[in-house]
Design a protein around this nucleic acid. Structure first.
Lengths: 183, 183, 183, 183
DNA sequence: TATGAATGAGTTTTCATTCAT
DNA sequence: CATGAATGAAAACTCATTCAT
């Protein structure tokens, strides 16, 4: 995965990958049909690695703020852990329809749906402003994704460092809850 | 660009591209040094939209809300116009250091910097909550980027349709300004 | 074809073939999908090379002896011209069902059928002994095939030399007509 | 042998063969030096049928007809038993000089020589027409080989079925002795 | 200036063979 | 003595690039 991420699918050679993995070229072909199958398998594996279930399963008892905070924190950490990989993953997921369906149904849909529930109940409780739930849920999910991508692009210049993880989570949570404007 | 976007750099063949462009393979080499030069030239061309400079140059007289709205609207339209291309652009930009420097200095930095100014002055005027400007500026830029990517992934199921462009801009602007919580 | 015949399909390398043909490896792939397609195309081409039509179209006016003689002579010359190729052709034809169907319908069936007609009319005219036409037609066709194969196997030791072509044809024709036993 | 016959030497993989034989790949290498040695050993084993020696050793007392009949019958049965294998055997024998020498000296030469003796003595006894012994012996041996090959090619459509073995032998014997022409 | 066939370097892929278990 | 995973040499195949037309 490191090689694919660094070079892209077409530019990563099987020899590169074998060498990075410390095995012979032929060994790879004992486990994967071909180079593409290798990529798909690797992606499928990293897709499901997150401990999403905890967050998604959080009880109603937990405060809205806590849930949003956990979500941001979890995805932020996933992003930090996956670093450069992020864009590559998205790009390949987008191009492979089977992978896309899997990712949409197993990762995107549950998260979006969880956020929608959150918004819905918040609005019903009159604690959240009435908004277009479908759009705002994507805005929140998108914000996390976009922040990770900017981090990858800016690299050394980015303010998104692991060390500041707590603070970033706090800021993003507050931004999400209160926006820019002072009450 | 359509072929690069659909297949990725390594998998797009010069023959594909020539055929899509309706010219012979050899003709491409009369205009571009090599395949990589072709990609770089194409990307460099799509980086900047005409409107961006106007928005970035907007006078202080314009209201904060208007500026945010214009920015969201412009990038949203860029994203809708570039569709699937979005991720590919980011991915290739990330991998090509010359391109990355160019993109960071010509697109990301001005936008981020404009947003930072906006936040700074808003906070000074006491109309915005005091926040970590570096983080929140990335949150806003990231939100727009992430929203475009989700749109590309979800495709038919996404609520981000061209037809609803006005409404989406409004929702995102309000979310940015006021957050989720009701005052 | 020379390389395939000399080495067999699996042992002939595309580099060998390209070098023997005096072109680059890549050039072969501009004309044939893959190595197997190359073989099939070559075989299909040599299958239909014979001037069978003349013999098969011979009028009834020609004497039975003349027809048999022409047939033996033609296939004998085809065999001498194709030399070692003979067995390889048969082997590959046998293994490729499309090729087999083509060979059976375009070469074997017409020849067998012509021989059957010949036998039938000869028996009716009472000039030929009554025999099982289906078996004897194969015996005659098979004799020619087998003789060619023995020639390929025995190589230097075989009595089937080009120089003796006329005499061989005469002997085989007489054997076919009169058998071993003296009247 | 089944795998070699079905696929050809180069296309048969040792894994195929091991799997068909119900052993592990490594086991094969405990008994044969390499893949080629395996093939040579298998072919050498199938070359000789038990009956051949009896026929070849038949005393002068046996009638010419009986000898020819036995020979045809034996090789016919060998062909029926070896089916598709036939062509493959010939092809590989042709290509392997050691194998070719062995086959020529142990199978072809004795049969041809036996037939030549038969013809010679028949001609001397004035019961056979005077013919070119070298050619006619090959015609007879070739007929049997060719008939087997046609049978393999035609498969379902061929009149050479096991069930008709007796009749086929009779027809071929009569054809050999008396030819087509009625006395 | 456009073309596209030829090229061959660079990759992917295969699979006979080895050898530790 | 059997096993089968690992190996890497050798082969198939791809395709960016060239260049004569």
């Amino acid at each position: 995965m490191a090689v694919f991420t660094r070079k892209g699918f077409g530019e990563a050679t099987v020899a590169d990958i074998a060498s990075e993995a410390g095995v012979a070229v032929g060994t790879i072909y004992n486990y994967y049909r071909d180079k593409h199958d290798l990529l798909i398998s690797l992606i499928a594996r990293s897709l499901l690695s997150a401990n999403l279930s905890e967050i998604l399963g959080a009880t109603e008892a937990t405060s809205d703020k806590k849930i949003i905070e956990s979500l941001i924190e979890d995805r932020l950490e996933f992003g930090l852990a996956n670093g450069q990989r992020f864009l590559f993953l998205f790009f390949e997921i987008q191009r492979n329809s089977k992978l896309r369906r899997q990712y949409l149904s197993q990762v995107v849909a549950p998260i979006i749906s969880r956020i929608e529930n959150l918004l819905q109940s918040g609005i019903k409780k009159n604690s959240f402003r009435p908004t277009d739930i479908k759009i705002i849920s994507r805005a929140l999910a998108g914000m996390i994704i976009g922040v990770m991508i900017l981090r990858g692009l800016e690299q050394k210049d980015s303010p998104f460092k692991k060390s500041r993880s707590k603070e970033i989570t706090k800021e993003l949570t507050n931004f999400t809850l209160y926006g820019l404007v002072k009450k």
